[in-house]
C-alpha cells in the first residue's frame, strides 16, 4: 500500500524536482554509508586483529583480513589469560542481578500501582531518587561497608550493588507496562476468589513478560559492561568479571596483542548475539528507559 502511495506522490512532483530528489538521495545514501562504516569499522577491526599475530597487527597487514587465521589466540586468551573464569563470573553476576531486579521491581511496581494505600506516590518518587544518585557518590562508603561485612571479593559484592542501582530504572519501565494491563482482570480474579498474592502471581506476573525482556536487557547491558564497582570491590582473580579482567590483561600482555583482541571479542560476542536476535527489543528498551525517565 505504501508503495502505491509513493508512486502517486512521485507523479505529483514536477520532472525537474524529481531529478533533484534523486541527487539528494545519493548524497544521503553516501552519508549514511560513511557513518555506518565509521560505526562498524572498530568492531570489524577488533574481530580481525583478534585472529592476527603482532607482525600483521603492527605493520604488514593493519586493516585487512588476517592472512593466517590464528584461532589459537582465543585458546590462549582462555587458558593463559583466564578469560574463561572472567566470562563465567560475568555470567553469574549478570544473571543473578537480572533475576533480583526483575522480581523486586515487578513486586514493587505492583504494590505501588495496584494496591491502594497512602503514600504510594511518595514511595515511587523516593525510588526514583536512585536515577539521580551517581555510583561515584556512594562507592567509597559502600566499599567500607562491604569490607566490614567481609563481603569484598565475592559475587555478592557486585550482585547487590548492581541490583540496587538497576532497580529504579526497572521500576520505571515496569510501571509503563503494568499500566497497560486492564484493571478488569484484577477484579475478575478477585471475584473468582484470588487474594492479592494470587492476583499477582496468576494474573499480573504472566502478563508482565514484555516488561521482563525489556528490563532484563537493560540490566544485562548495565551489569555486563560495568567497570567502576568491579575494579574497586574485586581484586581476587577468582571473582573478576570481564571488564576488570580485560583491564588487567591489557597491562599484562603488552607484548602480544592478538590474544587481547580475542579477549575483547569474547566480551563483546554475547551482547552482539543477543542484539542479532532481539535488536527491536533492545532498541525499545533504551527508548522506554529514556522517554519515561
Amino acid at each position: 500500500m505504501s508503495a502505491s502511495r509513493a508512486k502517486v506522490n512521485q507523479a505529483d512532483i514536477p520532472v525537474a524536482q524529481q531529478h533533484r530528489f534523486k541527487w539528494t538521495d545519493v548524497l544521503v545514501q553516501l552519508g549514511l554509508i560513511l557513518w555506518a562504516a565509521i560505526c562498524l569499522f572498530p568492531v570489524y577491526w577488533m574481530f580481525t586483529f583478534s585472529l592476527k599475530n603482532n607482525e600483521e597487527i603492527f605493520g604488514a597487514n593493519v586493516m585487512g583480513l588476517p592472512q593466517n587465521w590464528l584461532w589459537q589466540n582465543y585458546s590462549r586468551a582462555l587458558n593463559v589469560g583466564n578469560m574463561g573464569q572472567y566470562f563465567l563470573n560475568s555470567l553469574i553476576v549478570t544473571i543473578t542481578s537480572i533475576l533480583f531486579v526483575l522480581i523486586a521491581a515487578i513486586m514493587a511496581t505492583y504494590a505501588m500501582t495496584r494496591l491502594q494505600w497512602k503514600g504510594r506516590k511518595r514511595m515511587n518518587s523516593f525510588f526514583m531518587l536512585g536515577l539521580t544518585i551517581p555510583i561515584h557518590a556512594a562507592i567509597v562508603p559502600l566499599y567500607t561497608t562491604l569490607s566490614r561485612a567481609g563481603m569484598l571479593n565475592s559475587y555478592w559484592a557486585l550482585i547487590i550493588p548492581y541490583s540496587a542501582f538497576s532497580l529504579s530504572m526497572g521500576i520505571l519501565i515496569s510501571i509503563g507496562f503494568m499500566g497497560d494491563i486492564p484493571y478488569d482482570l484484577d477484579e475478575a480474579a478477585f471475584l473468582d476468589g484470588c487474594g492479592v498474592w494470587g492476583i499477582f502471581f496468576r494474573v499480573i506476573a504472566p502478563l508482565m513478560l514484555p516488561a521482563v525482556s525489556t528490563v532484563g536487557i537493560y540490566t544485562f547491558l548495565q551489569c555486563w559492561n560495568e567497570l567502576m564497582f568491579a575494579t574497586v570491590f574485586i581484586s581476587k582473580e577468582a571473582y573478576k568479571t570481564l571488564p576488570v579482567g580485560i583491564q588487567g590483561l591489557s597491562g599484562q600482555y603488552t607484548t602480544e596483542w592478538g590474544p587481547i583482541g580475542a579477549a575483547l571479542a569474547m566480551a563483546t560476542i554475547p551482547t552482539l548475539i543477543v542484539y542479532i536476535f532481539l535488536s527491536k527489543q533492545i532498541q525499545e528498551s533504551f527508548i522506554a528507559g529514556a522517554v519515561k525517565g
Binding site: C39, V43, W45, F58, L227, I246, T268, L272, I282
Partner: peptide, 27 residues
C-alpha cells in the same frame, strides 16, 4: 542503518576504549 548505528552502544566502555586506543596509537 538504524540497527547498525546502535551497535557501538552495545560494546562495553573498556572494550571500545582499548580498541580505539589501538586505532589512535597504531592505525
Amino acid at each position: 542503518y538504524r540497527a547498525g548505528f546502535f551497535v557501538p552502544n552495545l560494546i562495553g566502555g573498556i572494550v571500545l576504549g582499548l580498541v580505539w586506543q589501538f586505532i589512535f596509537s597504531n592505525i
